[in-house]
Design a protein around this nucleic acid. Structure first.
Lengths: 162, 162
DNA sequence: TATTGTTATACTCTATAACTATA
DNA sequence: TATAGTTATAGAGTATAACAATA
């Protein structure tokens, strides 16, 4: 009962179902891991986006596809917990620049590490070449989709904390 | 510039990233489609679960991994919109049985149809044998994961409305 | 005038705790 | 007593609309 080669007899889901289900599964893992540190998924996304950016509230709203008022509240709550800070913009007196605190960065990294471990475990049933094939197929879908639309690829890539 | 065979040069994401991103992408599609009919994702899940079940509030709470009080409110709001109904249990005077109304069923079907179209479009870059390979790989992950835990496979399979 | 961000308001979603009515 | 469901309460998350400050 070691590893592979008995998947021939499984009923196998439809492609739509398998994609839908894997998305729920992966999101559930991320949500659970974030929840262990009392994060919501959207808070995790916020921290992820801030890993290599110092955006204004407006830019955050675009990156997260939320209204600026929603982002304002999101940042409020994260700031209250010491995870992010608001700073002045040197070029526009109306703007604020949101950035991670050290604590926020550390926490985001922790969650990302645990989440990655979950995914590694999930991938265990596949052999290395099978994983490579899966990665290639998914990447092609993502790249093609990003090409069709704008460049959401980068925005969403931060969600998992990389 | 028709279809395939230029994916060799792409940078290609890591396996973790590709899974994380595809999950956000698919969830976003589902959320957007549900939102067109003013559904939330959880309302969509509720309707999906009810497609072939007539559960009690407690059973719903287990299926959706929510507290029974959360489910109570969820069902309240869906009932107020005429999507589900509460009925008496013939075997336990304390229980209620939740079921879809015709309108709820029709609406769930509509959303599922549009969502499926999104996924089909997403899959366009892959040839039929490539889709089959992707489906097989994902199915194996899902089946293995379900086997490791209980049988969440069935519960989550309804989420997309099948 | 237009834009950036905040605030007021309203609603959904969620959980905990207390309650009721059955069992 | 124990269980099923509801309700009261509290809080996060979301959007719309109105606002203050700056451009």
């Amino acid at each position: 009962m070691a590893a592979v080669t008995k998947h021939r007899t499984e009923p196998e889901l439809s492609t739509v179902d398998s994609l839908a289900q894997i998305s729920f599964l992966v999101q559930g893992m991320l949500e659970r891991r974030a929840g262990e540190d009392d994060f919501s998924l959207i808070q995790m996304r916020l921290l992820g986006v801030l890993r290599d950016r110092r955006p204004t509230i407006n830019e955050l709203a675009r990156l997260l596809a939320l209204d600026k008022s929603s982002v304002s509240g999101l940042v409020d709550r994260a700031e209250r917990r010491g995870l992010v800070r608001r700073g002045p913009s040197p070029v526009d007196g109306r703007s604020v620049l949101v950035s991670l605190t050290r604590e926020g960065r550390a926490l985001a990294r922790q969650v990302a590490r645990r989440f990655t471990a979950d995914i590694d475990l999930l991938l265990e049933p596949l052999s290395p070449p099978e994983r490579a094939r899966l990665t290639t197929l998914l990447s092609r879908l993502l790249v093609a989709h990003a090409a069709k639309r704008g460049v959401d690829l980068l925005a969403t890539s931060d969600l998992a904390g990389r």
